[in-house]
């Protein structure tokens, strides 16, 4: 057996409920750290930052599933839903920390959403993710049919907006957020390229099959 097969064999054995449990526990772990001094002397921003970054990381991981399988053969498709749902959970927690612990003042929250472009962008990303989280179940897939796939393409603009949001939060152009954006762009770019290739091969296939035998 090849290494990839070993890896895939192992991945098939990972219980999905365990990934849900451990993944969902992470924000509570950070909350605990924040309460006990583990996030430094300014735990509010630190917690907000950790959760936001976690959301971006899982978002990137979710986007990487398809290219990873196409390029290396490693198959994470069974875990794609849990990755997506956790992403939403992290981003929602990030938003909640911003609302409750950071801004605190209700009138300021609305003003910030409208007046601060980086918050507008972040909120837009969150809104785009919401229907994806709601429809992350078998019932919705059956119910929506082919429209489900189309709907879930919303993850692409979500990722781009998330990356832009991170860049805009920085006081200046910061290497870390630029790196995240670069990875997101590579993953989105791969899809553009891939769908072009598929279109081309479909066109060739059609031409060939249209030829009289």
């Amino acid at each position: 057996m090849k290494l990839v097969d070993h890896l895939n064999h192992g991945l098939r054995k990972v219980p999905v409920w365990l990934v849900y449990t451990l993944g969902a526990a992470l924000p509570f772990w950070y909350l605990y750290l924040g309460l006990t001094g583990g996030l430094g002397v300014e735990p509010i921003k630190a917690l907000e930052h950790e959760l936001g970054e976690l959301g971006l990381q899982t978002l990137i991981l979710g986007l990487a599933v398809t290219p990873l399988r196409a390029i290396t053969g490693v198959n994470l498709i069974r875990l794609r839903r849990v990755i997506g749902v956790l992403t939403f959970f992290y981003v929602a927690a990030h938003l909640l920390v911003w609302l409750v612990l950071d801004v605190q003042i209700l009138s300021e929250i609305w003003k910030d959403i409208l007046k601060r472009p980086y918050i507008t962008v972040g909120m837009a990303a969150f809104i785009l993710m919401t229907p994806l989280a709601i429809t992350s179940n078998n019932w919705s897939i059956r119910k929506l049919g082919p429209r489900w796939g189309k709907l879930h393409k919303l993850v692409y603009p979500t990722a781009a907006l998330g990356g832009i949001h991170y860049i805009m939060v920085g006081k200046t152009w910061e290497a870390e957020s630029l790196l995240y954006m670069a990875v997101i762009l590579v993953l989105l770019g791969w899809r553009v390229n891939d769908s072009r290739k598929k279109q081309r091969s479909r066109a060739i296939h059609q031409r060939n099959s249209a030829r009289p035998a």
């Binding site: 909350l31 924040g34 309460l35 002397v41 300014e42 735990p43 509010i44 921003k45 917690l47 612990l101 950071d102 003042i105 300021e108 003003k111 910030d112 601060r116 472009p117 980086y118 805009m168």
Partner: peptide
């Protein structure tokens, strides 16, 4: 990109 009307005081913990 952000308001300067209020500030977070360092040392107040998670619920400052």
């Amino acid at each position: 990109r952000w308001s300067q009307a209020t500030e977070r005081t360092i040392g107040g913990g998670l619920f400052a």
